[in-house]
Design a protein around this nucleic acid. Sequence first.
DNA 1: ATAGAAAATATGTCTGACATAATAATTCTT
DNA 2: AAGAATTATTATGTCAGACATATTTTCTAT
Lengths: 232, 232
Amino acid sequence: MILTGVWREGTTLPREIELASRFDVSRASIREALSLLKAKGLIASKQKAGTHVRARFDWNMLDEELLNWTLSALPAQEFAKQILEVRRIVEPEACAICAVRGTDEDFARIERAYRGMDAAGMDRVAYAEPDLQFHRGILIATGNDFLIAFGATVAAALRMSFDLSSTNPGAPRKSLPYHRAVLDEIWARNPDGARQAMHKLMDLTEGNIITAMARQKKKDAEDENVRTRRTR
Amino acid sequence: MILTGVWREGTTLPREIELASRFDVSRASIREALSLLKAKGLIASKQKAGTHVRARFDWNMLDEELLNWTLSALPAQEFAKQILEVRRIVEPEACAICAVRGTDEDFARIERAYRGMDAAGMDRVAYAEPDLQFHRGILIATGNDFLIAFGATVAAALRMSFDLSSTNPGAPRKSLPYHRAVLDEIWARNPDGARQAMHKLMDLTEGNIITAMARQKKKDAEDENVRTRRTR
DNA sequence: ATAGAAAATATGTCTGACATAATAATTCTT
DNA sequence: AAGAATTATTATGTCAGACATATTTTCTAT
């Protein structure tokens, strides 16, 4: 209800006892749920005054759970663009740092992920996990704890891409040579090349998402069309 | 204890009842505390199996609270470099986006922050808040929820810089013309100029932090020297 | 030695009570 | 009648003790 804006910024939510009876659980369980939302910055509470929804600015959108909830609660359209914009900023630079600072062990881990993607063939489901490991491996190789934490955002983004790719099963596989290029530049310890290769991968990803969303939109429209004709 | 590595990755922490008696609070309070750490990715728990410390990779380091705890629990040295590295990646790009996409209202808010910094004069304490608002204003102007969430990291970084600047009270004020330059480029809606201006501001910040840490280190060494001479 | 059944146990949930602090209502003063 | 000080109210915060549930460990039978 907070994510979809039913309870918008500043709204005071029902008191704990009422929430407990509404969801038919104990007050203790409600408090555990609220403390989770509190930790992620969605709400804040004061004694007697009650619990209110905090400003969106204070929400920790880079949190993986919150991000997943958001993606399943709202149309992905807008978020997809935003996530991609941040990935475009962060991942190419992380990739350049990785090429300079990463150890051979780091690179081997990324290589293993690449092999996993290759082995998955056209199997979308099997392709997803090593794909994530590939991108995460690059972030880990930077040795920067904040870039590593950014992996949570990438994970959510890939999960979203995966969901969207259901209408176009062959799409993921097309990214394989782009990943290979990134890997080669990293092994060559060539930061500029690595940055550029990752940039191209981001371009491809963006293209895939845009066409997938367009297809989705078209499909929704057709379904809607069928539905209205039937009800007429 | 988790942050300082007393309880390292994989460690199973004492059971809730024992923690409750150890800290002399009820089990309910312990559970609230644990659920906070759970939400931030530090720990995970399973029935009967207990609660264990998760891998560092899973910690949500971009969370403001966690970041503040970390900065107060560990020597800032290493973290300062890492935070700066990420800020260098994100803020100049955010600044460029801001210059293109921001509204005049957004710019006015940033301008107000700038005026607040100017009005603070040599007062370090009064300078800190508008400084944060300045950087946050740029992120907000991008309209990207993930860049906005990055403001939490910037906030922690600035707080750290503030603490370090105690040995050099005049340092913050020196950043004022650099902020002015950023603001001018934004008003001019010049993304490349804005990117570059922010980059220069980051250079200055890095210089300040490095000298401040060196000074701190020297001071620590002197104190240590005095201490050992006394005990001899 | 192995597979399956039973016991043990740590987290998860429930109930009901009291503590505390912020707000709202009331009383008193000027 | 306006404002300050006091009292009452109330929603979150904390406590205690109990039971439920899901793993793990131990025991038993094959």
